[in-house]
């Protein structure tokens, strides 16, 4: 049996762009260029490596997001994933992490999976909780924040990995099916080759909406959100500080400043 890997990837506004909020206090996704979250490239990379090690494997990349999110799927396909699933529905606008995890859980189940691989966090929301939520909803082990990951024994096998936590480094092990997330320490992601980019154009992208997933509109979207943003204020630009050029006394001048601020 083939090892079925589903990689969850998010389409995010470019972090180096001028990110801001729309009038309804959702993340503005129109004015800033979007891309496949860099942290999810690590998830695609680990999926490809696990698939290369396995006898037989199939990688599906999955995203929940607007029309443009197809770009993220194309990028993942051009890196080498086999097929894609795009959950897209107007009623999804403004969905928070609780809703997104519900949609992803249903989509993962519909797709069929032995292993789900996520990034460590999205580069926009940066909550880093979705993989745990997904594991909770699917009722399968969570093996998260791995800087090293491997799978042994195919679809009925085990996943092993190293988690570098705050207080300790842990070696983890769980039986499949499971949800994994990988960090940016797991190994640089490959660049799509020209051949990969050409091949990606022919790979299937399935579109699903809320009805396909048997989710009611009220359960998701801005109305269905479990949290409410009351205000978003642009942080005042830091007042221009003092900048001095070191002419041999820079360290002393800095000490003087620190002493003035009572740090010394």
């Amino acid at each position: 049996m083939s090892l079925r890997i589903v990689v969850c990837v998010k389409y995010v506004p470019d972090a180096t762009g001028d990110r801001h909020f729309a009038d309804d206090l959702t993340v503005d996704r129109d004015d800033v260029d979007g891309l496949l979250s860099e942290l999810d490239e690590y998830a695609v990379e680990q999926a490809l490596q696990i698939a290369e090690e396995a006898d037989d494997a199939e990688i599906t990349v999955l995203t929940v997001g607007p029309e443009d999110a197809k770009d993220a799927l194309r990028k993942a396909l051009s890196m080498g994933a086999d097929k894609a699933v795009h959950v897209e529905d107007d009623d999804l606008h403004g969905t928070d992490v609780m809703g997104t995890s519900l949609v992803l859980a249903k989509a993962v189940e519909k797709t069929g999976y032995d292993l789900v691989i996520c990034g460590m966090a999205s580069t926009d929301g940066a909550m880093g909780v979705l993989p745990a939520l997904l594991a909770e909803r699917l009722g399968v082990p969570q093996v998260t924040l791995l800087s090293e990951v491997s799978v042994e024994g195919g679809p009925e096998g085990t996943v092993k990995g190293r988690r570098d936590g705050d207080a300790a480094t842990e070696q983890l092990e769980a039986s499949l099916p499971a949800v994994v997330s990988v960090t940016d320490q797991s190994g640089e992601a490959r660049y799509p080759s020209f051949k990969g980019i050409m091949a990606a154009k022919k790979k299937p992208v399935e579109s699903l909406d809320l009805e396909d997933l048997e989710i009611e509109a009220e359960e998701v979207g801005l109305e269905g959100a479990w949290t409410a943003v009351e205000s978003a204020t642009e942080r005042p630009a830091r007042t221009a500080g003092t900048i001095v050029k070191d002419e041999g006394e820079g360290g002393k001048q800095l000490a003087e400043f620190l002493a003035g601020q009572k740090f010394i």
Partner: peptide, 19 residues
């Protein structure tokens, strides 16, 4: 920054530490 020094850190930092 509130305070910045344009310079070589190998000059500035040890001097700061000494001070």
């Amino acid at each position: 920054v509130d305070y910045g020094v344009v310079g070589d850190l190998f000059e500035v930092v040890p001097q700061l530490t000494e001070e």
